[in-house]
Design a binder for these strands. Structure first.
Lengths: 344, 344
DNA sequence: CTGTTAGCGCCTTCAT
DNA sequence: ATGAAGGCGCTAACAG
């Protein structure tokens, strides 16, 4: 390896050209693979060899200045640490960006409009080729105006101004959950935990929950299945799942199965079942949504319809970098069915 | 608000200068607040006003080309999604960077040397002012050679070549856990769950666990306390915590308290306790480490010594951006004591 | 005290 | 088929 560190001075295109015995412009064309202008095969080889030998790397700032493209994409999200979901989105985006020779500038805004505007400006200052606006709970978000020359895609979010968005296919996900129950031979005596018609109107609640619920109801109807009871819960946290489940159990015979609208609810429900001496899945079966990290930790493991965060992040950058720009429309990503042991 | 989008053309320094009736260089000096060269008060005001009116924003690429500084820092980590810890580090870094007017390029390497080298090159191509090398499990990592002109700090990691690193203060953390027990009046009949002398020698295991354990033992000795039993566990996952705890419970009377080396172990232990009909904290008290998301979900909530990821991320960029460069040494960040209900 | 000049590294005409 | 020249936007070293 002749890969030593040159701290004296970065090797420049001119250096490469000189070593190859050509002009910088010729070297530029060859290295950028311009097809129209046909330099000699020999020139090609000499330039490529010289670049390799010197370990030439283009100066992105100079290129950006000239072409206003930086091989960099911006990722602005409302929250990164609060939810483990964010890292999946980011990881997917990072991977796809790397594959495309791009690098990702990440900014967090906490959902505050001023910080968002500032973040976008900071990205634009750096000539990003496009920006991904990600939200941690799928919903309609307002994005600051950006020049029409800058590509944008909404990730786990929608927007009136930017029409390309990537969302989980919640409706099919809801369908899958019910099919799982059906396949386990459970058709009735099912408790639905979490759906709250009021909450759904809340802008801060995921907008895709509606689709999830629709998928659930439609499939239940189609399969001739029915809920014996529905408990609405405003806040989908373990404590609430626990308390509501405990209340239901205290009020009569336990249901045969519980469909929880997310894993945190299921986590609480499972604790309540344990306290009541009921066993999962023999006494009560459990299905839920998200494939939260929790789902794997539960005993028995929770069967759940996962949110495909990583795939969504990947998809977003693929769309952003599409040759003709991000295709408009809602791009749905399939939710994986994660089978564990909470269903018989 | 005259904050309309200019998609035709970005406003440039020349525009500002022209509007102020000055030369671009004069405008540059004023906007960059060069103290030495004293332009007239009036010129100052005119330039500032012009910049504000036009909504001027410097073109970072152009500035980078000229000054080779981009107000951008690189964050390269081995893993981002696998562990919820990563997002804390990133969030902290993002916040501090934003406060300092910087933006963060994130790259993930999966711990693979080639990807890491490539990522670093990509960052260097973009003139980053410095790079943070983060590892998700504190340990010694090899970083690719970078020019000495580029600042570097290790985050949750150490390295032979780069001497500034940020680490959790595990020794004090271990001490705190034992003090909690002491304050609860529990001095003996304590089970230690997880420590494994062999595992500790494993390079892929956090190097700081040694300090955590040292803090625990030293404090136990100093306080005249003792473990009645120690169970080593190689893999710190809930299942193992569950199984080992169940085995211990089956073999005799339960301990008065369990110190778990992480929350996932504690989660498993808590399940085993529940199955055995033992109540936390009345029958058995629990303390552990990390302040994983799980810790809040458990019933009762888990008292734990938290890993201060966000503070560490913040600290790392503060050190990176220090006026005289990152100060050498290991910078320890205090671990917060998170009191919940698993101790009496 | 102020303005002009030069050039960072690259790419894209245009002229050979 | 190849090379020369100019300029992206900015700032540092110069003149005036």
């Amino acid at each position: 390896m002749t890969q030593e560190v040159r701290m004296v001075k970065r090797v420049t295109l001119t250096d490469v050209a000189r070593l190859a015995g050509l002009s910088p412009s010729a070297a530029s064309m060859i290295l950028n693979g311009r097809p129209d202008t046909r330099l000699s095969r020999d020139a090609h080889d000499r330039v490529l060899a010289a670049a390799a030998e010197l370990g030439y790397r283009p100066n992105v700032a100079a290129r950006a200045l000239r072409t206003s493209t930086s091989h960099t994409i911006g990722f602005v999200s409302d929250l990164v640490a609060t939810t483990r979901f964010a890292s999946g989105l980011i990881k997917g985006a990072l991977g796809a960006a790397e594959a495309a020779g791009h690098v990702v500038l990440v900014a967090e805004t906490g959902g505050e409009p001023e910080r968002e505007a500032e973040a976008v400006s900071a990205l634009l200052d750096r000539q990003v080729d496009g920006v991904i606006f990600a939200s941690m709970r799928a919903r309609e978000i307002l994005v600051p105006p950006i020049p029409s020359s800058v590509r944008a895609v909404m990730l786990n979010a929608t927007s009136e101004t930017h029409v390309c968005s990537v969302l989980p296919d919640e409706e099919t996900g809801g369908q899958r959950a019910i099919e799982l129950l059906r396949d386990a031979g459970i058709h009735d005596d099912i408790l639905l935990l979490g759906y709250d018609a009021d909450a759904e109107r809340d802008l801060f609640r995921s907008a895709t929950v509606a689709a999830r619920v629709r998928g659930i109801y439609d499939t239940m109807a189609r399969e001739g299945m029915s809920f014996s009871r529905e408990e609405s819960i405003w806040l989908w946290e373990p404590d609430h799942g626990h308390d509501v489940t405990a209340r239901v159990l205290a009020s009569g015979p336990p249901p045969r199965a519980i469909v929880c609208l997310n894993d945190r609810l299921a986590f609480g429900a499972s604790q309540a079942l344990g306290e009541a001496g009921l066993r999962v899945p023999d006494d009560v079966a459990l299905v839920s949504f998200d494939n939260d990290e929790l789902a794997a930790y539960l005993r028995p493991g929770l069967t759940t319809i996962g949110l495909p965060h990583e795939a969504m992040g990947r998809r977003a950058v693929e769309l952003l970098l599409a040759p003709d720009g991000p295709p408009p429309g809602e791009h749905l990503v399939e939710m994986p069915v994660v089978i564990r042991a909470s269903l018989p």
